[in-house]
């Protein structure tokens, strides 16, 4: 069970016109694994994530989730398949409160025969929100407060708490602590550790070397649109990873393609 493959991509490629943002990415991760994706700006990390989450349509290649080939037309498809993404921009509606944001686009409702005017099950959503926040040990003083009135860390936690509320099958976080202070970063890292304890698979994009070594099992390095290294945490150290990121070193199995 623990070796079940969660996500697998073969020859995943994305060209923006003449720009080859992502070229032949072969990626694999197993259940419960936490994988970091590192690389310089423009190395193809975010492009890679956008293909998996259906935000963009890939040029070619195959994506499979839990052994099933998938082809997402949009982010909602990916989400329905169980991929929860915490985008860099967070994608929160500032004027809505916590439950509203967690359930945006997939509200609990009743009287569904009313179509677009079906009623919101505020109680149910509030209960599920509290459960989800408890599961991730997130502390938010008042979930009825609007996002506008929250700190950066709280916002980030709300975005991450979505994943816990919806029993995601794969969580992706795009630089979750880039804009946060020390204490808030610790809070977010705690959530990641909770996910690890819950055996929930995670892809973490981060520039923070300490964080990566703290949190994940494996590091995949992107360079100029290609994967150039696939390193187990035990077999590497920060200097080594930097060498791969800057291009001083290239993983043996990637010699042919990455340069």
């Amino acid at each position: 069970m623990s070796d079940q493959i969660v996500l697998k991509t073969e020859d995943l490629t994305k060209h923006y016109g003449g720009v080859h943002a992502l070229e032949g990415a072969n990626f694999e991760m197993t259940k419960g694994e936490h994988v970091a994706i590192m690389g310089d700006n423009g190395a193809g990390k975010s492009t890679f994530v956008r293909q998996i989450t259906g935000v963009e349509q890939r040029t070619r290649g195959k994506i499979s989730l839990y052994g099933e080939d998938v082809d997402f037309a949009g982010p909602l498809d990916a989400r329905e398949a169980g991929i929860e993404t915490v985008f860099q921009t967070l994608a929160l509606a500032d004027d809505l409160d916590v439950p509203d944001n967690l359930f945006l686009g997939r509200e609990l409702t009743f009287w569904n025969w009313l179509g677009p005017f079906r009623f919101l099950d505020y109680k149910g959503m509030r209960r599920a929100t509290i459960d989800g926040l408890n599961k991730t040990a997130v502390k938010i003083p008042n979930i009825r407060n609007t996002i506008r009135n929250m700190s950066g860390g709280q916002r980030q936690c709300v975005a991450i708490a979505r994943t816990a509320t919806f029993h995601s099958r794969l969580t992706i976080m795009d630089e979750p602590t880039a804009a946060l202070g020390v204490q808030e970063t610790a809070q977010v890292e705690n959530i990641v550790k909770t996910l690890k304890e819950g055996n929930e698979p995670l892809i973490l994009i981060s520039h923070n070397m300490r964080q990566v070594f703290d949190l994940v099992d494996r590091i995949v390095v992107f360079r100029r649109g290609r994967i150039c290294a696939n390193l187990k945490k035990e077999d590497t150290d920060p200097q080594d990873v930097v060498a791969y990121i800057t291009g001083a070193k290239t993983g043996e199995e990637y010699m042919e393609t990455a340069r």
Binding site: V55, P75, L76, F87, T89, L90, A91, L92, A93, D94, D95, L96, D100, L104, G105, R106, E107, T109, L114, P116, F117, R118, F119, L120
Partner: peptide
């Protein structure tokens, strides 16, 4: 209702509404 909630969501952050 859902209609109302989505109306507020779109005015609040259209991009977030789309991504949701």
């Amino acid at each position: 209702t859902v209609y109302g909630k989505h109306t507020y969501a779109i005015g609040s952050n259209e991009e977030a509404a789309r991504m949701s």
